[in-house]
Amino acid sequence: QIFVKTLTGKTITLEVEPSDTIENVKAKIQDKEGIPPDQQRLIFAGKQLEDGRTLSDYNIQKESTLHLVL
């Protein structure tokens, strides 16, 4: 699982696999929060994550925290 922290300070927990794409993660966030993926920007280690890449591409491991910017 990974954590996604929103600007409001809320933390969302997501069940993911390293092979999941960023697009996939955004879809999971939409399921939980109702935020359309095209409004979501995910930041990890100061980098904006691209939809077509996977979590493992960015070396995002379990218990990692991503930041969600709208």
Rank of each mutant, 00 (worst) to 15 (best):
Ile29Cys: 02
Gly46His: 06
Ile2Thr: 01
Pro18Asn: 07
Val25Phe: 03
Ile29His: 00
Val69Gly: 06
Lys10Gly: 08
Pro18Val: 11
Val16Ala: 08
Leu70Lys: 07
Leu68Arg: 00
Thr8Met: 11
Leu66Gln: 01
Pro36Lys: 07
Gly9Val: 02
Pro37Met: 15
Leu42His: 00
Ile22Asp: 00
Glu17Val: 12
Ile35Cys: 06
Leu55Asp: 00
His67Thr: 14
Asn59Glu: 08
Leu42Asn: 00
Gln39Thr: 08
Val4Tyr: 02
Thr8Ala: 12
Asp57Lys: 02
Ile29Thr: 01
Arg53Val: 07
Ser64Pro: 03
Ala45Pro: 02
Glu15Ala: 09
Val25Cys: 05
Pro18Leu: 14
Leu70His: 12
Leu42Thr: 00
Lys62Ile: 13
Gly34Ala: 05
Gln40Thr: 05
Ile2Lys: 01
Leu42Ser: 00
Leu49Gly: 00
Asp31His: 14
Asp31Gln: 13
Ile29Phe: 03
Thr21Arg: 07
Lys32Gln: 11
Arg53Glu: 04
Pro18Glu: 09
Glu15Tyr: 13
Glu33Cys: 15
Ala45Arg: 11
Lys62Trp: 14
Asp20Met: 10
Gln61Glu: 11
His67Ala: 06
Gln48Asp: 14
Thr13His: 07
Thr21Tyr: 08
Thr21Trp: 05
Gly52Glu: 10
Leu68Trp: 02
Val4Gly: 01
Ser56Phe: 11
Leu66Ile: 12
Leu55Pro: 01
Gly34Cys: 07
Ile60Gly: 01
Gly46Leu: 03
Lys28Cys: 05
Lys28His: 05
Arg53Cys: 12
Gln39Phe: 09
Asp20Arg: 02
Asp20Trp: 09
Ile43Arg: 06
Gln40Val: 09
Lys62His: 15
Gln1Asp: 05
Ala45Asn: 15
Asp20Ile: 05
Gly9His: 05
Ser64Gln: 08
Phe44Gly: 03
Gln48Ala: 11
Ser56Leu: 11
Leu66Phe: 04
Asp51Lys: 04
Glu15Arg: 06
Lys28Gly: 03
Ala27Asp: 07
Leu49Arg: 00
Ile60Glu: 01
Asn24Ser: 14
Ser19Phe: 11
Thr6Phe: 15
Arg41Cys: 15
Phe44Lys: 03
Tyr58Cys: 05
Phe44Pro: 00
Ile29Asp: 00
Gly34Asp: 05
Asp38Lys: 11
Thr8Asp: 14
Gln61Leu: 11
Leu42Lys: 00
Leu70Trp: 10
Glu33Ile: 14
Thr8Trp: 11
Asn24Leu: 13
Leu14Pro: 00
Leu68Cys: 03
Leu7Trp: 15
Lys62Pro: 15
Tyr58Ala: 03
Lys5Met: 12
Leu49Met: 06
Thr21Asp: 03
Gly46Cys: 09
Glu50Gly: 04
Lys5Gln: 11
Ile2Trp: 02
Thr11Gly: 03
Leu49His: 00
Leu68Met: 08
Pro37Arg: 13
Val69Glu: 12
Gln30Asn: 09
Gln30Tyr: 15
Leu68Pro: 00
Ile43Leu: 13
Lys10Asp: 08
Ser19Gln: 09
Leu49Asn: 00
Leu14Phe: 04
Asp57Phe: 12
Leu49Val: 04
Arg53Ala: 08
Phe3Trp: 06
Leu68Ile: 05
Gly46Ile: 02
Gln1Lys: 13
Ile22His: 01
Ala45Val: 06
Asp31Cys: 14
Thr65Ala: 04
Ser19Arg: 07
Tyr58Asp: 02
Gln48Arg: 08
Val69Ile: 12
His67Tyr: 13
Ser64Asn: 09
Asn24Ala: 14
Arg53Gln: 09
Ile43Phe: 15
Leu14Met: 05
Leu14Gly: 00
Glu15Val: 11
Arg41Lys: 10
Leu55Gln: 00
Gln40Asp: 01
Gly9Tyr: 03
Leu14Lys: 00
Lys32Pro: 02
Thr65Arg: 05
Pro37Ala: 15
Arg53Asn: 10
Leu49Ile: 04
Gly46Met: 04
Lys5Leu: 14
Gln1Phe: 15
Pro37Trp: 11
Ala27Gln: 13
Tyr58Val: 03
Gln48Tyr: 13
Leu68Val: 05
Ile35Met: 05
Ile43Asn: 06
Ile60Thr: 02
Thr11Asp: 04
Asp38Gly: 12
Glu23Val: 08
Asn24His: 10
Arg53His: 15
Ser64Tyr: 08
Gln1Trp: 14
Ile43Gln: 07
Thr13Arg: 06
Val69Phe: 12
Lys5Asp: 05
Gln61Phe: 09
Thr21Gly: 03
Asp57Ile: 03
Pro36Ser: 08
Glu63Gly: 13
Gln1Ile: 15
Thr6Ser: 07
Ile2Arg: 01
Leu14Cys: 04
Thr65Lys: 05
Glu23Met: 14
Leu7Met: 15
Glu63Met: 10
Asn24Asp: 13
Val4Ile: 14
Asp38Glu: 12
Lys28Trp: 05
Val16Gly: 03
Pro36Gly: 05
Asp57Val: 03
Thr6Ala: 06
Tyr58Trp: 02
Lys10Thr: 10
Asn59Trp: 05
Leu66His: 01
Lys32Trp: 06
Gln39Ser: 10
Leu49Lys: 00
Asp38Pro: 08
